[in-house]
Design a protein around this nucleic acid. Structure first.
Length: 299
DNA sequence: AAGACGAAAGTGGTTGA
DNA sequence: TCAACAACTTTCGTCTT
């Protein structure tokens, strides 16, 4: 059993889908982004080639998924048979591949641009490309800006993958205003019948806490608060950013690492008013107000 | 002077008729 | 499609430390 080098505790936990191992007591991240490079099948005898694959993996980030084949003009067949037939084939391949593929080429280069600007994880980029490809195939891009659908796909992919990108981030990267992005991503959701879970405040806690320079203890305190908030149904209908910000503000005070509302508002992109409303609500409804006024009295 | 507080008015999203 | 509603924002004056 592994121990946490920080506090020596053995209670380690896996954070879902993130490939991280975190110490339950102090919040230290021990391992992150673990990838298993081994093969995913068991080899029973050395001659079993049935599951081996060849070639590059399929990817949606290339317009033909990396599988494109072109009719060449130097093949033996070309030389042997009549040339007219092959010229016609080449011509037709070009024609057929134009509409959707050219669109995809353009869109994917836009996606690459956004992706590198936001430093997206490859999995998120891949998912964005997949969603976009589906959208094109269903003809959703017709009559709409290509870049709008790209931005929408990126937003959906980031939500699906629980990475803490906000609409504002995507807007900055793509130069599209929030209203348009909102319209388009919901349009894609509806047409592709994708169901989106509300974003989890927990994903924002890691980000905000590190930007505020808060200790791991405070971070885990905030996570525990969010747990309670969820159990008491205080999260429904509220913005996950606001919940994370409020919980962090409260956790920081309780742990004697107080940050000003202004600073928390800065990193979380919620207003001080909202942080006040949330943390007040949390402290009263979770019965922390007495503890809180004690701390504030002694400060 | 900085930070916290809360009222008032406005915005955008959701829901239900 | 429209109205009602809660959450959130913006702005601003006041209070506290």
């Amino acid at each position: 059993m592994k121990k946490c080098p920080e506090c020596g505790d053995e209670k380690l936990m896996h954070v879902k889908d993130k490939g991280e191992v975190v110490c339950r007591s102090c919040g230290l991240v021990l391992e992150e982004k673990m990838v298993d490079f081994g093969q995913e099948w068991t080899e029973h005898d050395n001659n079993d080639d049935s599951k081996r694959r060849a070639g590059a993996p399929l990817t949606y980030t290339q317009h033909d998924q990396g599988l494109g084949t072109e009719i060449g003009n130097s093949s033996d067949l070309y030389k042997l048979n009549n040339k007219d037939k092959f010229k016609r084939l080449i011509k037709w391949q070009r024609r057929v591949s134009t509409a959707i593929e050219r669109n995809l080429q353009l869109a994917l280069s836009e996606l690459k641009r956004i992706s590198s600007y936001l430093k997206l994880a490859p999995a998120v980029e891949e998912e964005s490309a997949r969603i976009y490809t589906l959208a094109v195939q269903r003809g959703l891009v017709k009559g709409r800006g290509l870049e709008h659908i790209v931005a929408g796909s990126v937003y959906i992919a980031s939500r699906v993958n629980d990475c803490s990108l906000t609409m504002d981030d995507i807007c900055n990267a793509s130069g599209i205003d929030k209203k348009t992005l909102g319209k388009n991503y919901r349009f894609i959701l509806r047409k592709l019948e994708i169901k989106l879970m509300p974003a989890d405040p927990i994903n924002y806690v890691y980000k905000y806490a590190s930007e505020l320079g808060l200790s791991p203890v405070t971070q885990t305190k905030a996570l525990k608060l969010i747990d309670k908030i969820k159990n008491n149904g205080l999260n429904s209908g509220k913005s996950p950013k606001a919940i994370a910000a409020g919980a962090i503000y409260l956790a920081a005070i309780i742990n004697g690492e107080k940050r000003t509302q202004e600073k928390v508002a800065m990193v979380s992109n919620v207003t001080e008013v909202t942080i006040r409303n949330r943390y007040k609500e949390f402290s009263t409804k979770l019965g922390l107000d007495k503890q809180l006024s004690k701390i504030q009295a002694s400060a």
